[in-house]
Amino acid sequence: MITIRIPTPLRSMTGGKSEIEGKGASIGELIEQMNADHPGLKDRLCDEQGEIRRFINVYLNEEDIRFLTGKDTPVKDGDEVSIVPAIAGGAHD
């Protein structure tokens, strides 16, 4: 099993869970399986071309998958995947 850490804004889609478990041979497969269990999650993570959205980082054991082989990055039992929206903010109204 692979542990996937879910950021606060997406927890409404995982029944409030901050961690879920997933199966798959690659990050791409893991996302598909997560989406089957939690419909809509893929849309929140990936754009219309299926790429990870430009404000989201997906880390495999602390390394951004963009610097591995993206969604083809292989995963194995015991791995930890973290989904982290890049920092954002905004001025006072």
Partner: peptide
């Protein structure tokens, strides 16, 4: 507002 580019941040 701002949103950092995730790739550049990594």
């Amino acid at each position: 507002a701002f949103q950092m580019d995730a790739r550049e941040l990594s």
